[in-house]
Measured scan of single mutants.
Amino acid sequence: MLEGKVKWFNSEKGFGFIEVEGQDDVFVHFSAIQGEGFKTLEEGQAVSFEIVEGNRGPQAANVTKEA
């Protein structure tokens, strides 16, 4: 699992990017966010995740919000 911070997330469109120190930003789709209820992320929020190869390159999977 990697750790990063949410760079930005558009809850209307359901996607955004996660910043990872020393690496390129990683695309995140709302469907990759773990948990119940409305799936969104806040700018600057700490998250842990895995990287998988998507249709358009690397993207986040199994995203969990850090306490």
Rank of each mutant, 00 (worst) to 15 (best):
M1H: 11
L2M: 11
L2W: 13
L2A: 10
L2H: 12
L2V: 12
L2Q: 10
E3M: 15
E3C: 06
E3A: 15
G4P: 01
G4V: 01
W8L: 04
W8G: 02
F9L: 02
N10I: 07
S11H: 15
E12L: 13
E12P: 08
K13Q: 07
G14Y: 02
G14V: 01
G14P: 00
F15V: 08
F15I: 08
F17N: 02
F17R: 03
F17S: 03
I18F: 03
E19K: 14
E19D: 07
E19M: 13
V20H: 08
V20W: 10
E21P: 14
G22S: 08
G22Y: 08
G22E: 07
Q23N: 10
D24P: 15
D25G: 04
D25H: 06
V26P: 01
V26R: 03
V26T: 07
F27G: 01
V28Q: 00
V28E: 00
H29C: 04
H29N: 04
F30P: 01
S31D: 04
S31Q: 07
A32C: 04
A32G: 11
A32W: 05
I33E: 02
I33A: 02
Q34N: 15
G35N: 09
G35R: 04
G35D: 09
E36T: 11
E36N: 11
E36V: 09
G37K: 07
G37N: 07
F38Q: 08
F38R: 11
F38K: 09
K39R: 14
T40H: 12
L41C: 03
L41R: 01
L41Q: 01
E42I: 11
E42H: 14
G44Y: 06
Q45M: 12
Q45A: 11
A46I: 12
V47E: 00
V47A: 03
V47M: 02
V47S: 01
S48N: 14
S48Q: 15
S48T: 12
S48Y: 10
S48H: 14
F49T: 02
F49Y: 05
F49N: 00
F49R: 00
F49K: 00
E50F: 13
E50C: 05
I51C: 05
V52P: 02
V52A: 09
E53F: 14
E53Y: 14
E53H: 12
N55K: 14
N55I: 13
R56D: 08
R56W: 13
G57K: 06
G57I: 04
P58D: 05
P58Y: 10
A61M: 13
N62R: 11
N62S: 11
N62C: 04
V63C: 04
V63Y: 00
V63F: 01
V63M: 04
T64F: 12
K65Y: 14
K65G: 09
K65C: 04
E66G: 15
E66S: 14
E66Y: 15
